[in-house]
Design a protein around this nucleic acid. Sequence first.
RNA 1: GCGCCCGUAGCUCAAUGGAUAGAGCAGCGGACUUCGGAUCCGCUGGUUGGGGGUUCGACUCCCUUCGGGCGCGCCA
Length: 552
Amino acid sequence: MIVEEQIREILLKAIEKTGDFKTSEIPLIIDIPREKKFGDYSTNFALLSAKALKKNPREISGKIIEKISDPSGIINDIKIEGGGFINFFVKKEAFHQLIPLILSSPHDYGKQNLGQGIKLQIEFVSANPVGPMHAGHGRWAVLGDSIANILSFTGYDVQREFYVNDFGNQMELFSQSVLARYLELLGESSEFPEEGYKGAYITEIAQKIIDKEGPKFLKMPQDERLEQIRELSYNQVLDLIKKVLKETDVNFDCFFSERTLHASGEVQKTLEILTQNGCTYEQDGAIWLKSSALGDEKDWVLVKSDGNPTYFLVDIAYHKNKAMRGFQKVINIWGSDHFSHVKRMHASLRALGLNSGILEVIIGQMVILKRGGMLVRMSKRTGEMVTLEELIAEVGRDAARFFFIMKSANSVLDFDIELAKSQSQENPVYYLQYAHARICSIFKIAEQEGIRLKEISNTDLTLLAEEPENIILKKMEQFPSVVKNASNRREPHLLAHYALDLAGDFHSYYSHYRILSDGKNLTLARLELLKALKIIFETSCALLGITAPEKM
RNA sequence: GCGCCCGUAGCUCAAUGGAUAGAGCAGCGGACUUCGGAUCCGCUGGUUGGGGGUUCGACUCCCUUCGGGCGCGCCA
């Protein structure tokens, strides 16, 4: 058991003994004070309970302290300070037990069962297959991938899904655009659709089709060639998307095709259920959802007056499908431009008679791409954009991933390509990776010098008595709670900051103390510490989706 | 106009309602012939946009105000 848990137990027992209140009434929060003088751990329990007890917090703390017993003798001192904080000063040796704990099951350190194995689906990126992915997609890709890693690690049965919008208006416009370029390239006159995609990549797609299929579409009837061009083009784009995701090391379990929802009749069926449940009405030749009666601000169209379903209706069918697949929790990552969809999706789940609580939406703010301080405008229509592929190629995968994931998703992200590149030598990601590589390097040298680790139980860990060693151990102990926080809040950046912080502690320690010293037992003890530390770096990097190189 | 997000050091960003608000970058000055100098150590830098309130305690919660972003489609 780690020290913090021991402190918790000691406190719980003591509070129980006072008999003044049940510990379940007031949360027992154990903090790690920023100030060293306030000890290793502290609790504000007395301050929180003062009101209920109508007593002075310092008095309450005093009473609790009286009842504290410390059978395993880990505590050096207990003090009441400030308004009534109880501060614990723990013996350094108490932290040493963490090392064998980590080493006994390296891959499990930090692992938790928060999710209790519930089936959870996370859907992210879901870029329309009508053009290459841009930086914004990159943010969702990396964020979703890391959240999925963390959720799996904390006991959720996670499935990662990419929703492919391979149906509808955008598809049509897209294929018309490609066909127009195709005809142009072959010297035929063509009419480019007014709202068509004007990016240069459309011409590239058309050229590839010419390379592969030749001019065979010139004489084909319009409907037929449009359909064939559509299939060829969209598959090209989808392949590219998959390729770039792979390069970014973002993995999906499922690419879910929108078409299947239409083909299976699920869209139609969904509309029927909504109507049966009395949640729809007709107006101006369209069918509407009464979402305003279900928690949304307004009603939305389900079926347009031309008889076609809206994206919204299909999305309802899609979420119904998710629920039918047995997911108990469904997480979507959407850009802030989709914010208004959150309420209406919840409303529509209620309209279906489903628990809207299963759907959780993470709204991420946009990415502002810059190049040397200058704004890079992004538009799929005009085609002026920096693709994710180019970004990764230019900045590097790990550096780009770290840049995306280091910052909280609910702030607009400034991504300056020049900055990310020029800093590449001092990019925080290398600081973290370097810590890992350094440890590997030490072990390599230790091996060359014939230093062999003993059984951990025969290693004298009490030799780890230096202050920085204590700081590192204490921070290592926090790892599970950082993971827990990152999981509950779906915020990988917490983990990124933690890992950087720990890397900093290590670098500082390294430059002030010899690991491979003359004292053999001290060397062995320090190597064990580094072995455990290395595991935390590896696990952190894995959860963040970056590599932990042995040398750089 | 309404809804949501953001506003913290020159810049980019952190901080489950806790004690003296922290890092990195940039700037300045340093690191003993030893395990990797992609490192380390020190200094400079703040009215947490402004104003009220709740609280023993507020960057954090509430109200208000200013500034920026994103929405408010029979587009997706």
